[in-house]
Amino acid sequence: MERLSAAQWARLEAELRRGPLVHGFEDDQRRTLKRIKLLIGRMLYVRYTVQGVWKLLRRHGWSCQVPVRRALERDEGAVEVWKKEVWPQVKERRRTWVPTSASKTRQG
Rank of each mutant, 00 (worst) to 15 (best):
G77I: 11
G108E: 06
R11L: 11
V22E: 08
I40M: 05
R93W: 01
L12D: 09
A102L: 06
C64I: 11
R3C: 06
G61A: 08
K91S: 09
A6V: 05
G52R: 02
E85P: 02
K84A: 15
L38Y: 04
P20C: 08
R59V: 01
T96N: 01
Q51M: 08
E13P: 02
W97Y: 13
E13D: 15
T105G: 12
T100M: 08
C64K: 03
R42I: 12
V66T: 13
T49W: 02
V53T: 03
K34S: 10
G77R: 12
L44E: 06
G41M: 14
W9V: 00
K104E: 12
E13T: 10
A102E: 05
G61N: 13
I36S: 03
R95I: 04
E92K: 14
A10T: 11
E92I: 09
E92Q: 14
V66L: 03
Y45R: 10
E76N: 06
G77Y: 04
V79I: 06
A10P: 04
V50A: 12
R94E: 14
P88F: 12
W54I: 00
K104G: 08
R3D: 10
R95K: 02
R17S: 10
K37F: 03
Q107I: 02
V53R: 02
G24N: 06
Q8L: 07
T100Y: 11
H23R: 10
Y45V: 09
R74S: 03
F25A: 15
G77W: 12
V68Q: 07
V90Y: 11
R93H: 02
K84E: 14
K83R: 14
V66D: 00
E73C: 04
E85W: 13
E2P: 08
E76G: 00
M43N: 09
V98H: 05
C64A: 09
E92T: 07
L21S: 07
R74Y: 01
V46Q: 13
S63Q: 11
E92C: 09
M1E: 05
H23K: 12
D27Y: 13
T32C: 09
R42P: 09
A10F: 03
V50G: 09
